[in-house]
């Protein structure tokens, strides 16, 4: 009961904000804390296409990193690699997740270490819908995703 009340009254975490551009809604933007600024950071997000036209995420930009790139973790014969993803499809009527173990943004050349509780903006560029800027919440290095009440996907 108490936890329910807290959930209802606490301000929504950044990662639970929903941003929209055209038919696309973008939510659950989060990152993991880093130790120092030398290691790459990571960016996860979920995009839902409520429209009838296929779109694609073709780039990310952020003041938090010198070289933000889209990657995909691929496991082939048990070996994990992270090739660049030139374009991440967001088909009409579907949701696409950048999530641990799959597509993700890799933030190389961090401006500063990412600390738990920080937030930073990332601008996503879609092939058709254009650009949208979201607030990214930095969770702990051990986090597996934000805990959003509406996250009933």
């Amino acid at each position: 009961m108490l936890s329910t009340l807290l959930t209802l009254t606490a301000p929504a975490a950044f990662a639970c904000e929903i941003f929209t551009v055209g038919d696309l809604s973008v939510e659950h933007a989060w990152s993991r804390a880093t130790i120092g600024a030398d290691r790459p950071g990571v960016f996860y997000v979920e995009v839902t296409n409520a429209g009838t036209t296929d779109d694609a995420l073709i780039g990310i930009a952020t003041p938090a990193a010198g070289m933000p790139m889209l990657h995909e973790t691929v496991v082939t014969n048990g070996i994990a690699s992270m090739p660049h993803a030139m374009s991440i499809p967001v088909p009409a009527g579907q949701s696409v997740k950048l999530a641990p173990g799959g597509y993700h943004g890799m933030l190389t050349g961090l401006t500063t270490a990412l600390n738990e509780g920080d937030s930073f903006p990332v601008t996503l560029t879609f092939e058709k819908a254009g650009e949208v800027t979201v607030n990214v919440e930095v969770l702990s290095l051990r986090a597996e995703g934000p805990d959003c009440e509406h996250a009933g996907q």
Partner: peptide, 16 residues
């Protein structure tokens, strides 16, 4: 390895 942004923290979180 500790410079690994995705697979390693994910696996270490799972193991934890």
């Amino acid at each position: 390895f500790t410079w690994c942004p995705d697979v390693c923290p994910t696996t270490l979180s799972d193991i934890s």
